[in-house]
Amino acid sequence: MLLNPAIMALVLVSAMVTMMLLLASGFAIQVIRHWDINSGSERQLELERRTYLISTLLTWSFVSELISLLLFVYNAESMSGQFVGAMCATGVLNVNEWGWPTLLLKIVIFFCGTSWLALNYLDNQGHDYPLVRWKYTLLLLIVPLAVAEFYTQLQHFLNMDPDVITSCCGALFSADAEGVAAEVSGVEPDTAMLALYGTGAITLLSGVWYARRRRGGVLFTLSGVAAFVVALMAIVSFISLYIYEHPHHHCPFCILKSGHGYAGYLLYIPLFAATAMALGSGVMAPWKNRPSLAAAVARDAPRLAWLAVSLFGLFYLLASWYVMNSSLVMTGVWW
């Protein structure tokens, strides 16, 4: 299976990104040990110069991770024709035990990466780079994830056996089966709806509150993360049903298909972007008392919060629109 061009591209990207991150982590260790902004030594000068290289490398790494996340899902979707029993990305991810961990790692790296970029942006605003140790410590935590992702992805592609009959969304996302996916599918739609709009309201309100009053940044970030998780559950539990207009089809991947008007992309892109922004404003907010960063935090964190709030808003509007405009009627069954 390795000779498929999309797979070669994914492996190539993951290998390059891992290499760049390893390079950066070597530098990170040096920074953590030797950084001293007040020193005029040659080493400090060299370190300061090198930060430019490293942040450029990392920006590119995280941007390519983002594209590779999209490509990974899209590729899984398009390979579903090559496996017995696979009808969408779920079946391909299920082909072996490495598929789901790879996807999860890619998502986690995406959020870590965007948070890191936000922190890096903020740090560059301060004339004395006050967060430099923090951000390189954070980087050292991201590197193992990237290495793990490279490994799991490679295993996923190497162990693809077209003769294995895989189980697809119909089996995995059904209320009668066992496992996390089944649990999520089995959540009562009214509970899921309540949770979705509940976390949505808290996130939007705390976001606006933070953006206007500059208080409660942590609350906003936490509720943003909760809203993200609940939104994914809600997509599996009831939003997808309305998009498919089918009371038992819970798959979160089939909505990416052209047959459903690419609804999935319209839902996931605002949701992921909003969560990333919320996390970004969350990592910025705690530094408002640093003298060299106060102005930058006061300017940029609320800006990110506004963006996050509008993207979350867009997601809720779209989700509600899909539910309202669907021909599926289940009110008599649920309530």
């Binding site: 061009p5 999309a6 070669m8 591209a9 994914l10 190539l12 990207v13 390519s64 594209i67 590779s68 999209l70 490509l71 899209y74 590729n75 398009s78």
Partner: peptide
Amino acid sequence: GLQVATLFFF
């Protein structure tokens, strides 16, 4: 889209 993204990566 998959093609274009793959090509971009190559």
